[in-house]
Amino acid sequence: MPVNYIDMARTFKSNAEQVGIVQGHRLCPGCGAPIIAKFTLMTAKKLGFEPVVGLATGCLEVSTTIYPYTAWTVPYIHNAFENVAATMSGVETAAKSLKKFGEIPEDRKFAFIAFAGDGGTYDIGLQSLSGMVERGHKVLYVLYDNEGYMNTGNQRSGGTPTGSNTTTAPVGKVIPGKVQIKKSIVDIIGAHEGVYAATASISDPADFFAKVEKALNFDGPSFIAALSPCTRFWRIPDSATNSVSKLAVETKYWPLYEIDRGVYRVTRKPRQFKPLIEFLKAQGRFKPLLSRPDADEIVNKLQEYVDKRWERLLALEEATKDKYLR
């Protein structure tokens, strides 16, 4: 029974503290991360789950729990930067064990949700995440991908896109910013096979909610990579969070798809695509790149890359149809 979004919106409109994360936190205006947290928690609650959240060190963590305050009205644990997946493996296993020992009721329906940024996921936390998925813990891991170490002031991560200007891979006279291509994190997690992995965008709430629902009802680990605009270091206006997210989808920069036990499915197929340059031009972080004399050459290459990736995705969808690996 899919969650009724309108009903969900009504429920939480008059009952904001019930969402799980409340106002008063110190995230920047326009930050994508709390929207992602809300979308996830609202869906979990609406489906009747009791959410228990874990956070990796990062923007969402430091800005919501400045002692003695907390913005969380659901149980919350932050351990360290690289280990939210292992920490939540422990929390989930504790619940399983306490049920087995008969110390908590068997019918408690928890939703164990980990939130982490790209640094805590693509880079320092990848091992911990891989371990959690491989062992099959029933945890939903939500990546809020703001494409850099934004909490510490815009350093390059494995999730930073090519050509973006960061403080540790700046666009210089010789080097045009980050030269490597962003890791395909969903494919990496999807390759663990016994997992539901998907991308999501806050510009498409219906797709987002549906994926959270699928993830929470999945019998095993799940992973959602949500693009999370960072107004401060993507150099975009506070009001552009949604429009830039939308552009990311419309330019094939952030295709919306899922990998369910090896089966690829593209969940949104725009009839018309916009050129990638529109996504790049909308953000100040690409301005130094676009001011270079070789900008066209680099942008063309990136356009070619997103085109090829889209074609590959469609081919994978076709090739893996109904071929569930597990």
Partner: peptide
């Protein structure tokens, strides 16, 4: 009846027991 987590490193071993202990186990 113990649930065992065969973690992928000691870092995760300590992280998981922190999570489990905080959960009430």
């Amino acid at each position: 009846r113990t649930e065992m987590i065969p973690v992928e490193s000691e870092h995760s071993a300590m992280s998981a027991v922190v999570g489990a202990a905080a959960a009430g186990a």
